[in-house]
Amino acid sequence: MYSEEKDITKVLLIESDSQEASRFADACSKANIQSIILKDSYEAVQYLKHKKEVDLIIAEKNCIPLDSSRFRSYLQNELQLQLPVVVSVTAEEIVNDTYSQDPGPLIQKPFEPGIIQYLRRLLMADKNVSDQQIYSLQYLEDISENDSSFIKESLILFLETTETCIPDLIADVTEEKFESARSIAHKIKPSFAMLMANRAVEICEQICHQASDEQLPELVRELYSLHEQIAEKIKRDHLKNKHV
């Protein structure tokens, strides 16, 4: 997938479930990574006020008292910390919440033994994405000769389609309905292609034709995370007054 993985030496996890916390600590220990496990975002803020040298924070989506989105804002605006925050979500949270307020990288629970490798790739993917354009309107502009109403309608259609299909994709993978998952990836691939979201196209292609069943959950998680970033940026840049 990626030729380069970002090195991680110290991770802060905000996790209220002791079993998940324990699984995560074990994975870190095996990878020689120091893990700081805290139960809520208040403890995390207190910790980070004094010790800022963590490479990565993983915050439960609905951590308290600040949820992951507010926690991230607090870090950036109040503590002036630009640390990567990955949000952990359950499959149910993804399926039941078609539009997350948490743009940015996400990981799905339960935490698995390969989580560290996945996080390294995720950070590198996030860096790559932020270094490049996450999507482009160039293709839509070309086919419509810059027709702004067509472009806007296409963006709304993109969101309507993907915000239904991605939770279905996650549900299928969770229930091990792999052929159905591949069929959904096949259906949404052209939508990403029309927005020139090349990494998303590549992931869909892998899901459809290259990846084994065992590899699908990780690819789907990455696609979900990437889609959240694209959707959030589209809404912010082009659909400010639209309710999608």
Binding site: L140, S144, D147, L157, T161, I188, P190, S191
Partner: peptide
């Protein structure tokens, strides 16, 4: 075509 975005683009262009 079952991808609405592709469908609408083709319709628009044609």
């Amino acid at each position: 075509e079952d991808n609405t975005m592709v469908l609408k683009s083709l319709e628009f262009k044609l």
